Simulated scan of single mutants.
Amino acid sequence: MIVIYGIKDKLNPIKSTLSDVIQSCMTDVLTLPASKRAHRIVPLDKEDFYYPDGRSDSYTVIEINMMEGRQQDTKKSLIKQLFNRIEAELGISPIDIEITIKEQPAHCWGFRGMTGDEVQDLKYKVNV
């Protein structure tokens, strides 16, 4: 699951394209199926979104929640792809993008009535 935060006046006009860019990176780098999109977009009023000095109102936070198991190089590649593609396709400078990958053990995930360590029919690999 991915949660995206930003100032609503900047985030709302681009949210569909941003979601497409993020999903394409997830598909290319993590080999997730294109249909495995679980994005939550949280547009905030400017007065509710504090961010570091030196950033613009385009500052966007992307939190990626996933089961642990991906290699360090894979996660770094994902982060770099996100920076590159978001800048190329949306014109948001990497200085205005913050990406955090949060990993949890498979047994901490619950979906389709079971925990992640019980599922046997994933259409993608976690250990990439």
Rank of each mutant, 00 (worst) to 15 (best):
P13H: 04
I7L: 04
F111D: 06
Y59E: 02
P52W: 14
A38R: 12
Y5C: 10
P105H: 04
P52A: 13
K36V: 15
E118V: 08
I86D: 02
G113F: 01
A106T: 04
S35H: 09
T27M: 11
K36S: 15
Q23W: 01
E118A: 10
Q104E: 14
P43F: 15
D53S: 13
E89L: 10
S19T: 15
D9H: 04
M26E: 09
D73A: 05
R37H: 11
I14A: 04
I7W: 04
H39K: 10
I7E: 09
T100F: 03
Y50I: 11
T60I: 04
Y50F: 12
F49T: 02
Q72F: 14
I99N: 00
C25R: 09
V126N: 01
S77N: 15
I97E: 01
M66G: 14
T115L: 02
D121Y: 01
H39S: 08
T100C: 00
L30D: 15
F49E: 10
S16N: 15
N127I: 04
L11S: 08
C108N: 10
I7S: 05
K75P: 06
Q104T: 13
M67D: 03
L32W: 15
K15G: 02
A88S: 12
P13K: 09
Q104C: 06
T74S: 09
S24A: 06
D73Q: 08
I97H: 05
V61K: 13
T31F: 08
K75Q: 13
V128L: 00
E103H: 02
T100R: 08
E103Q: 07
K8F: 07
Y50S: 12
I95G: 02
I4Q: 09
I7N: 03
A38D: 07
V61L: 10
G116L: 05
D28Y: 08
S19N: 13
Q81P: 06
S58H: 14
D20C: 02
H39A: 08
K80A: 12
I62E: 00
D121A: 00
